[in-house]
Structure formats: structure tokens, C-alpha cells
Computed example of a mutant assay.
Amino acid sequence: MGEKKDNLITMITDSGESVNFYVLEETRINARGYLLVTDAPEGQDGECYILRDVSGCQDAEAVYEFVEDDQELDSLMGIFEELLSDADVELKK
């Protein structure tokens, strides 16, 4: 579960801890939202993750989950690489 504010999203773990991620890019594919996030502030190296918006129409806040399927991750990473081709961001798998 996560709450997005500007370029920062706060995820709540199963144990109730808050973890912040920085949003690098977002896109919609087949009416579903995706976020490319990192655990490091701008200008620092960090791990990247792709989150899928699984919110329902009745949800007051956005609900995100990590994309874990390797085939889906590869496909989405290609899309995000194209979206970030003009930005000063280097993505490595």
C-alpha cells in the first residue's frame, strides 16, 4: 500500500513500517498505472523498482504493489528506458 505525494511515495510494509521511494517516472499501460521508483534521492545511486497501481474506484488513496514477474518487469523496464531516454538517468538491470 502506498501514498504518492509529488515525487515521493511512502509505502507501508506488512509490519507497519514506512518506507519512502522517489518517483522517477510514471506511465499508464492498458488503463493501469505504473511507477518507476528508487530508494535514493536525486543524484545518488540506488535500487529501482516498478510499482503497479492496484487501486479500486472506491479506494480513497492509491494502492501500489511491486511488480515481481520477470517477463512483465523486462517489458516495463524497456518502456521506462524509452521514457527516460532524454533524462540524466541510467538504468541497469
Rank of each mutant, 00 (worst) to 15 (best):
G2M: 12
E3R: 12
E3C: 12
K4S: 11
K4T: 10
K5M: 15
D6N: 01
N7Y: 12
N7V: 11
L8Y: 13
I9L: 15
I9D: 06
T10G: 00
T10W: 00
T10E: 01
M11Q: 08
M11S: 05
I12H: 10
D14R: 02
G16P: 01
E17K: 13
E17P: 00
E17S: 10
E17V: 05
E17T: 06
S18P: 09
N20E: 12
N20W: 03
N20L: 08
N20H: 07
F21R: 02
F21C: 02
F21Q: 04
Y22T: 09
Y22V: 12
V23I: 15
V23P: 04
V23S: 05
L24D: 02
L24V: 04
L24T: 02
E25I: 01
E26V: 03
T27L: 14
R28Y: 11
R28S: 12
N30I: 14
N30M: 13
R32E: 09
R32M: 13
G33S: 03
Y34F: 05
Y34H: 00
Y34A: 00
L35Q: 00
L35H: 00
L36D: 07
V37K: 00
T38I: 01
D39Y: 11
D39C: 08
A40C: 08
A40I: 02
A40K: 05
P41E: 07
P41D: 09
E42I: 10
G43N: 01
D45N: 06
D45R: 03
G46N: 00
E47G: 03
C48H: 10
Y49L: 03
I50L: 13
I50R: 05
L51P: 00
R52T: 07
R52I: 08
D53T: 14
V54F: 03
S55A: 00
G56A: 06
G56R: 09
C57T: 02
C57H: 02
Q58C: 09
Q58Y: 13
D59M: 04
D59V: 04
D59L: 05
D59T: 05
D59H: 03
D59K: 04
A60K: 05
A60S: 05
E61C: 03
A62M: 08
A62L: 07
V63R: 06
V63W: 01
V63Q: 09
V63K: 11
V63D: 10
V63M: 05
Y64V: 06
E65Q: 04
F66R: 12
F66G: 05
F66D: 08
F66S: 09
V67F: 15
E68T: 13
D69E: 02
D69P: 02
E72G: 12
E72K: 15
L73T: 08
L73M: 11
D74N: 14
D74H: 13
S75M: 15
L76C: 07
G78Y: 11
G78A: 12
G78E: 13
I79G: 06
I79S: 12
I79K: 15
F80N: 04
F80G: 06
E81D: 11
E82L: 09
L83M: 11
L83P: 03
L83H: 06
L83E: 06
L84M: 11
L84Q: 04
L84H: 01
S85G: 01
S85F: 01
D86R: 15
A87K: 15
